[in-house]
Design a protein around this nucleic acid. Structure first.
Lengths: 205, 205
DNA sequence: GATAATCCTGAACTTTCGTTCAGTATCTTA
DNA sequence: TAAGATACTGAACGAAAGTTCAGGATTATC
């Protein structure tokens, strides 16, 4: 790889990382291009050299983030023995990955905005669908294995989604440790809430 | 009351209602003054005749909303026999009142924004504190009455808050009936999750 | 080493949006 | 009914933010 190519890739990554962090922290609209330049040291023009537009940058991040997330998850999914354990693993990964599943605050705001392209709209709809399908699969697995009471799987997937979205929102201003504690407690409550028997196995710390 | 005064009050209410709805729907920044004029028929100038600024309008709505909410709640709180029933009532009121407790998406976004006044900052901090105290009291009541397992009350209050915030976020694009169903299911899961015994009373429909 | 390609800068342009204000219409009051 | 108060309009202003571009710096290619 060229020195140029390497440099290009590095700045691209530098901009991406800073932008993602800011988008998560402040939301889409509230994050300005100048905020990103301030966080990277790059100039405005440089951002537009590497990315088509602010919207393009956001979309790129969403794609990348989603792919990374899924990859990381699939890598360790098989290590969990039960659906309950998976949920704790799920929570842990969320806390470690920028306190979020892809598509939370910024994405939601982006979703409601009226200036989005068709391409963006389709991509977001697809991600939401994938997201809910992921939750459904996780819950269905628990039901099939007898860990969870059988019931409204789709509804429970929505509830889990709400919990995740809400947790990421209120944890935005707290430390990683604090967030992890709250996430664990939340999963604990959720598991008790859907458990087949009163007793649910606690996580190994 | 004068015809002028009546008219003034009506417009003020008309603007307030439209603005609150838009703020809930789109968030604070994404809602422009022109959006509000479009939704009310009033002119830009008229909004500034009745309200000091966009920030002032938002703050006014927050105050009003909070007061109304508390009043409505206190009015029917005594009708609920158990903590569990209170939670279902809580959910119902949230769905009916613009699908939200005061201080959700727009307020959260407002909270993170960097251009806020000290007055606003204080007011918001106060509301957040009240909000969590409300949750804590509700949960503590359940523990005291033996409905809920005793445990980390403050932590559970955070989890409940996350659930509420998340529910309002994902329900923003769904119908009232759909939202109510999801809210009820969520409360059901939460109640099972914190219940002392495996069996938790279902709500009367 | 010269030329071309790539990476990057920062000032300037454009659009959007909050805000103001001079002026008009409607109502109250005396 | 005349004068003043109140409610409202919409064009204009200014600040902020997204975007573009001419040109400079660095690296690759020959």
């Amino acid at each position: 790889m060229n020195k140029k190519q390497l440099q290009s890739e590095q700045t691209r990554k530098r901009i991406g990382d800073a932008a993602r962090h800011l988008f998560v922290q402040k939301g889409y609209k509230a994050t300005s291009i100048e905020d990103i330049t301030a966080a990277t040291g790059s100039s405005k023009g440089n951002i537009y050299y590497h990315f088509k537009s602010k919207e393009g940058l956001f979309l790129y991040l969403l794609d990348e983030w989603d792919r990374d997330w899924i990859a990381k998850w699939q890598e360790k999914e098989h290590r969990y023995a039960s659906a309950a354990e998976k949920m704790y693993g799920f929570a842990e990964q969320m806390v470690n990955e920028d306190l979020n599943h892809p598509l939370t605050k910024a994405a939601d705001e982006f979703f409601v905005g009226d200036d989005k392209t068709c391409e963006v709209e389709d991509r977001l709809a697809e991600m939401v669908a994938n997201h809910l399908a992921f939750n459904r699969a996780l819950i269905q697995e628990g039901i099939d294995s007898g860990e969870f009471r059988s019931g409204d799987t789709a509804g429970l997937a929505l509830v889990l989604e709400a919990l995740v979205v809400g947790l990421s929102q209120i944890s935005r201003r707290s430390s990683t440790e604090q967030a992890l504690t709250t996430y664990r407690l939340a999963i604990e409550v959720f598991l008790h809430g859907v458990a087949e028997t009163a007793a649910v196995s606690e996580p190994e710390r």
